[in-house]
């Protein structure tokens, strides 16, 4: 099958679109890395840079938006070309959201860094982010390579992220119950963990767009989900009923294994 268009400049334009998406993705990935590094190191200066850099991602999204508009108007794309262009537009929206979440993590870091450090939660969030960063890298490779299998693999890995998030959620609730002074940092860390989990969801959405781009339809199977935070309850170890409780239910720090409560 021929892979090049008779009109070469159309190929150049599609290549430019690819490059813009990958540039944007690379920026989103490094923004997330910096945001989490700032969180772990309690580095307010780095966090400030992350907030500032988000403009670059927004600028590329605008460029992609304008470029897609022109491509649709001037090339009248059909079939796989049309799918690539539409998918790229949607992917750029997801990458922009990823950038926003990274920026939000950086903003919270400036608050978190002002109160005493609390346990090893930041490190746990960093581990979870490590998985998500790998997903971003692979999903960009899958985009460039039009690789459905790699996209499916990325999609499957989101379950691990969800489970890590559930376990972080339980951990943070427990910190809050242990000492009300933990509530401020724990709440910010809770949102930070949620942001990373949402980034994972956006990466999953990008993987689905890659499937659509190549195969002409969204993946049909349901994605496995491991996020149970919406149903999570951590029982309060109240002094009033502490003595009456002998059923062995876990009211101490939950284990960090992502198991359902």
């Amino acid at each position: 099958m021929e892979t090049e268009h008779i009109v070469k400049s159309f190929d150049e334009e599609l290549l430019k679109l690819d490059n813009l998406v990958v540039e944007m993705g690379g920026l989103a990935e490094s923004q997330l890395a910096d945001a989490i590094a700032a969180l772990v190191r309690r580095d307010i200066e780095l966090a400030g840079r992350v907030v500032e850099q988000d403009k670059r991602i927004d600028a590329i999204e605008n460029e992609i938006h304008g470029f897609v508009l022109r491509l649709l108007a001037t090339r009248q794309p059909v079939a796989v070309d049309l799918r690539i262009i539409l998918a790229s537009l949607k992917i750029s929206s997801s990458l922009e959201r990823i950038g926003d979440y990274a920026k939000n993590i950086a903003k919270r870091t400036t608050t978190i860094a002002k109160v005493p450090a609390m346990g090893g939660t930041a490190q746990s969030i960093a581990r979870m982010t490590g998985v998500v960063q790998g997903m971003i890298k692979n999903v960009l490779d899958a985009y460039i390579g039009r690789d459905v299998d790699m996209a499916a693999d990325v999609r499957a890995r989101d379950e691990e992220v969800d489970q890590m998030h559930t376990s972080l959620f339980r951990e943070l609730l427990t910190y809050m119950m242990e000492d009300p002074r933990n509530i401020t940092p724990a709440t910010h860390l809770l949102f930070t963990a949620k942001n990373v989990e949402r980034i994972g969801d956006h990466v999953t959405g990008i993987a689905e767009q890659i499937h659509f781009m190549v195969a002409g339809e969204l993946p049909g199977d349901l994605r496995p989900k491991g996020d149970n935070t919406s149903y999570t309850v951590v029982e309060v170890a109240s002094p009033l009923n502490a003595g009456s409780r002998n059923d062995g239910s876990p009211n101490d720090r939950p284990t960090n294994d992502g198991s359902k409560p």
Partner: peptide, 8 residues
């Protein structure tokens, strides 16, 4: 079409 003409 040159790429520059698309980004002006």
């Amino acid at each position: 079409m040159s790429l520059s003409s698309l980004t002006t």
